[in-house]
């Protein structure tokens, strides 16, 4: 019995004291503080409608950020994400509107295309030993070229109304995108925290050599992260497309910056090996709440960019300058 008691003492998560706890959950504490502050000061902010609106707007960007999260977790970076969004949007609309394919077939096709992009990214980086920044920058431009050749840069509108459900539908009071995000986040949280594959992402990002010598298939894990990123990005892109019911190559422009901010805001280490899905979700909500508040106060778009930039700098500075042991 003595040893059992000892085991309990030694397997306690925060025996290191409140500091470790605070470092783990700093973003959540900040987030909650901010919500309380905004709710107290703004009567428009605290309406149910506004809260649901924030959740809905944050959903797809959160899903896309979860994709980038996996790549960053394995100490890589995926720059091609904005092109994947444009590609999915324009080809999906093209398949449905121009070629008249059923929606589900079009979805399967664009998903497959994204998987191929993910594999290409992964192979370039993992087997080709290219720095991920360069490798994915190349695919970003190649894809961009291809979809501009396909579409001439013009949007394709005229998607059926029924498709609007994905981006704007409701289940009871809850917007459908929010439910979708919650389900995906739940599954990915289980994947990262409770499966061997999930733990492997952390091992690869933390120390790829040690992971390899411990028997982890580091090549598979590295490529899988890119594929997962492409798939999640495609889901997000379909959602964004469904909001306007038209395929648009420009859909992904400027999104990469927000995605990076969210992933880092969520406590993910840019050098890999540290971070949680729940953090990414909170990061997405965090950014959306700030955007929302800025809109309510009447800050114009360009100033919003400045504010977001300042936030990213602040978070990265904190991340780089606080030691977590």
């Amino acid at each position: 019995m003595e040893s059992n008691k000892d085991f309990k003492a030694k397997s306690k998560r925060y025996s290191g004291g409140w500091r470790a706890f605070f470092q783990d959950w700093m973003i959540l504490i900040l987030f909650v503080t901010m919500i309380i502050l905004f709710s107290l000061t703004s009567s428009t902010f605290r309406t149910t409608n506004n809260i649901l609106n924030i959740l809905r707007q944050a959903s797809f960007i959160a899903i896309i950020s979860m994709g980038e999260f996996f790549v960053i977790l394995t100490a890589n970076m995926d720059m091609s994400l904005s092109s994947i969004i444009g590609m999915v949007s324009i080809f999906f609309a093209g398949f449905v509107v121009t070629m008249g394919l059923p929606i589900w077939v079009a979805i399967v096709l664009v998903m497959l295309m994204s998987v191929v992009v993910g594999i290409v990214n992964g192979v370039l980086v993992v087997y080709g030993k290219m720095p991920s920044f360069i490798g994915t920058l190349v695919t970003m431009n190649v894809i961009k070229g291809l979809y501009f050749i396909y579409s001439g840069g013009l949007p394709i509108s005229g998607l059926p109304e029924s498709f609007n459900f994905l981006g704007a539908g409701y289940v009871g009071l809850m917007p459908f995108p929010v439910i979708l995000m919650a389900v995906i986040a739940g599954i990915l949280n289980i994947l990262t925290q409770h499966t061997a594959l999930g733990r492997s992402f952390y091992a690869v990002g933390g120390n790829i050599e040690a992971a390899k010598l411990s028997g982890i298939n580091v090549k598979f894990v590295g490529i899988f992260a890119f594929v997962l990123c492409a798939i999640l990005t495609a889901i997000g892109a379909l959602g964004l497309t469904s909001k306007t019911l038209s395929g648009n190559v420009m859909l992904g422009e400027n999104l990469l910056f927000d995605v990076m901010t969210i992933v880092v805001l969520g406590g993910t280490s840019l050098s890999g090996g540290r971070g949680r899905i729940i953090g990414v979700v909170i990061g997405a909500l965090f950014l959306q709440v700030i955007s929302n508040m800025m809109v309510l106060v009447g800050v114009n778009t360009y100033w919003q960019w400045v504010v977001k930039g300042v936030i990213l700098v602040a978070v990265v500075l904190i991340d780089a300058n606080t030691k977590r042991d």
């Binding site: 397997s11 952390y202 050599e209 040690a210 411990s214 982890i216 090996g273």
Partner: peptide, 16 residues
Amino acid sequence: SLGLDMLFDIKDNTTL
């Protein structure tokens, strides 16, 4: 650099 993952705790390193 080869034996341990310095970001991991004792448990995760031991069971890797």
